[in-house]
Amino acid sequence: MSSWQKYPWIALVAARSNLAYWGDVASRFIFLGVVLYIFLRLWQVTYAQMGAAELGGFTLAQMLWYLVITESITLSGPRVAQAVDEDVRTGVLSVQLVRPMSYPLFRLSTTMGERLVRFVMNLLVGSVVALVFVGPIKLEGAGCLIFLLSVPAAFILDFLTNFSIGLGAFWLEDTSGLLLIYSRLTMILGGMLLPLELFPDWLQPVLKALPFSSVIYGPAHLLVHPDWSAWADLAIRQLSFILVLSLFVAFLYRTALKRVFSNGG
């Protein structure tokens, strides 16, 4: 097996092991259902009160479908930072280093495998909720395609940030605070709770330029408002952030490895 072939297999094993725990998968569906129902009511009341068919360019149905995607992306995220943090603190990392594979790529493969399963499941459950309460929206083949093209890059970008936070365990007493702050910034600045069109006009270009929106808002917006030029713009931003963050992770990882001490026995 060549050095690269093992990583898709690692992703496959991670995906299959994730499917084995149905209880855990089902319990996440309850939370997703509750959140989507609350958002549905919030926006139903808001649209009715404003007497508007569209808000920020979204109809009520589009708004709920947008939220289905943003919630599916957010809730599909595996606990990468916690896993890396634990590997560092417990010394498991030194065992991983002995294995004939790159530790960051091993974590990336595991994350992508797990996340793909969770994302698809969340999407299915979210779609059922949306279909029941607001019905379908007009989807084009091209829209679905560019949406699907934008999702893997969003996951990689999110992984790189989480991995960097996990590596922080080499220097910090506790990384959970940093992780919580990152996830909340992604929620609000990434457009998970509100489409960026509903933010003040002066803030929208700033938020669109930040990496958070490339993880959540970008893909979700493409499904609801498909546009090839918007996809090209998003893809350039996603790839640029991935490049910069990859370089940062490589630097951080090399620096961190110098701090690894292991005693055999």
């Binding site: 007493e173 506790d174 940093l178 919580l180 909340r184 910034l185 929620m187």
Partner: peptide, 16 residues
């Protein structure tokens, strides 16, 4: 350090 960072992070979480 861990205690303070957790308190601050939760404060930021709620502020969001």
């Amino acid at each position: 350090g861990a205690f303070l960072s957790q308190v601050v992070a939760m404060f930021v979480n709620d502020s969001v």
